[in-house]
């Protein structure tokens, strides 16, 4: 019996919510098209990453989640002709196609919501990791929306978050301790958004009564916390990437970026669900 062709997936931690859902979507398409899937989750302990163990030359194609594969590995796979697709990542040096969520649309929806519906204008922005593409795109989009709504955000209202709950919590705590005046927080991801809500409440600030909080991206944890977000369908992102990969494996040349729309998930932390719709 002929051996099934294999698609490889390189990720940093297959058990995280985002990665798990991307893998589920990619596997769904792979199975539908007669492929099996091998996963290399190479850095489950970020302090002790193990080397990538996949035999890339034996694979029909490789899907890479975020920046899990170093540039030199990507380059060698690309130069050897291995079909590649990236999820939530771009490598300007190489024409490898990718699938990303629409950061610009998502940030635009969050700002529009918190300003137009929740009537918040004294805003704080919790930043991600400045070197990551998602982070820089979201921050640039936030800045553009501030211009659109004629809102001036002082530099001290741009807080370090690093896509880390603990870093975001420290930044917000320091801001509260300094007596800063703000009524809305937009976090570059939902994990930081959740921790901001907790920190504010611990300090006696009512969410959403005193401060509205929203965050980018969505997961069950965000739903449990009642956080208003914009949701990218991450399973669909995995499906799209697998289709892109299989198409290349069948001989189609693809470069560029497939973009997935996001949708606003209105929950409790923005406080507008109790407000009448603006007509």
């Amino acid at each position: 019996m002929a051996r099934k062709p294999v698609l490889g997936i390189i990720t940093n931690d297959q058990h995280q919510v985002f990665q798990r859902n991307v893998i589920a979507g990619a596997s769904d398409i792979a199975v539908r098209y007669g492929y099996s899937v091998q996963i290399d989750s190479y850095a489950e302990d970020p302090d002790h990453p193990s080397p990538i163990t996949l035999d890339c030359a034996a694979l029909s194609g490789v899907l890479v989640i975020a920046d899990a594969a170093p540039l030199d590995l990507l380059r060698s796979m690309y130069e050897s002709g291995t079909p590649l697709s990236l999820v939530s990542h771009l490598v300007p040096e190489l024409p490898i196609p990718s699938v990303i969520a629409d950061n610009v649309q998502g940030m635009s929806e969050l700002v529009k919501h918190i300003v137009e519906r929740c009537h918040r204008r004294k805003l704080v922005y919790i930043r991600g990791v400045p070197t990551q593409r998602d982070s820089s795109e979201r921050e640039a989009a936030f800045f553009r929306e501030m211009l659109r709504y004629n809102i001036s955000v002082p530099d001290i209202h741009f807080l370090r978050g690093d896509f880390s709950a603990s870093v975001a919590a420290q930044s917000v705590q320091a801001m509260i301790d300094n007596g800063a005046d703000f009524d809305g927080v937009i976090a570059a991801d939902y994990v930081m958004g959740i921790t901001v809500v907790e920190t504010l409440r611990r300090n006696g600030r009512a969410v959403p009564g005193d401060v509205s909080v929203v965050g980018f991206g969505d997961a069950p944890e965000a739903e449990t916390a009642g956080l208003t977000t914009v949701a990218a369908d991450v399973v669909e992102q995995g499906r799209r990437a697998a289709r892109q990969l299989i198409s290349q494996q069948q001989g189609t040349r693809i470069t560029g970026v497939t973009v997935l729309s996001v949708r606003l998930m209105i929950r409790e932390t923005c406080g507008c669900s109790a407000l009448p719709l603006k007509v």
Binding site: R240, S247, I254, G256
Partner: peptide, 13 residues
Amino acid sequence: NALLDVINGLMAQ
């Protein structure tokens, strides 16, 4: 070429 790549990218979906 870019036009063909974009169409290919959408045909894959």
